[in-house]
């Protein structure tokens, strides 16, 4: 029972100890995933997140087997 977690760009560098997988038990939302993966690190003001490659808000629900990602504002092009 696990949720895969990814961090990108500056977030990955700021949270080098963050887990790449968390136990899904007791985890209901993306925010819960953040707290568990980062040992309750402060959530950056402009953090963006996704579930299974779709943009979602922090309060969005998650399920066992999901892939959750956290990243800063995008700067491509």
């Amino acid at each position: 029972m696990a949720i895969k977690v990814k961090f990108f760009a500056s977030l990955r560098e700021q949270l080098p100890a963050a887990d790449s997988q968390v136990d899904a038990d007791g985890v209901a939302t993306i925010e819960d995933v953040w707290q568990r993966a980062t040992a309750n690190a402060l959530i950056p003001a402009h953090v963006l997140c996704s579930v299974n490659l779709e943009h979602r808000e922090l309060h969005a629900p998650v399920s066992d087997g999901d892939e959750v990602a956290f990243f800063p504002p995008v700067t491509g092009g």
Binding site: A9, S50, F71, P72, V74, T75, G76, G77
Partner: peptide, 28 residues
Amino acid sequence: LMEALKSRATFWKKETLLNGETRWVEKN
């Protein structure tokens, strides 16, 4: 296409400056 990809697509730029410092680009 250009404006939409810049605002929506998950890319992140990290610059290396002439003095060797690196920094993430924070906004387009």
